[in-house]
Computed example of a mutant assay.
Amino acid sequence: MTREEELRKLADGLEESVRTVVSELIGEIVFLELKLEQLKQLPFIETNPKNQNQHRETCAAKQYKVLLQQYNNCIKIVLSAIGKCDETEESPLRQYLNQMRKNNV
């Protein structure tokens, strides 16, 4: 079973309108996973040949960061759509912080 088939199987139980959107995102996720793996093979840091103490980020590192952010956003949307990620539920830390705010007001 391919990665795309695995992800599409997760969306099988969704209503048609949601499944259409998730289906498009699944294609993007598979594409982004492939690109991220390709970028991992490239160096992320360049060293100045004249001064070994000077380093800079490569274009591959910059692209990796951008694509990783897009990938994470797509994953978050898909998980939310299939009910695996409930953003409305507060984490224990957030509950604690909200309680502290109420007590200090």
Rank of each mutant, 00 (worst) to 15 (best):
L68N: 08
D12A: 10
T58Q: 07
Q63D: 12
M100T: 09
T88C: 00
F31V: 05
P49I: 00
E37V: 03
Q95R: 15
K9A: 15
L7E: 12
N103M: 10
C85P: 00
I45P: 07
A81F: 10
K62R: 11
K9I: 08
S91E: 05
K76M: 14
T2V: 06
R3A: 11
E5S: 13
A11G: 04
Q38E: 15
S91N: 09
T58C: 10
C74M: 13
K102W: 00
V18T: 15
E5F: 10
C85M: 11
A11M: 08
C74I: 03
S91W: 04
T2H: 05
N51F: 06
L14P: 01
E28N: 08
E89V: 10
V78N: 05
L32F: 12
L39Q: 11
D12P: 00
E15Q: 09
E16M: 04
E4V: 08
Y71H: 15
L10K: 10
I77M: 07
R3E: 14
R101E: 13
V18Q: 09
Q99V: 02
R94T: 15
Q52R: 09
G83N: 05
G27F: 01
C74L: 12
F44H: 09
C74R: 08
S91L: 11
I82P: 04
K50P: 00
K102D: 08
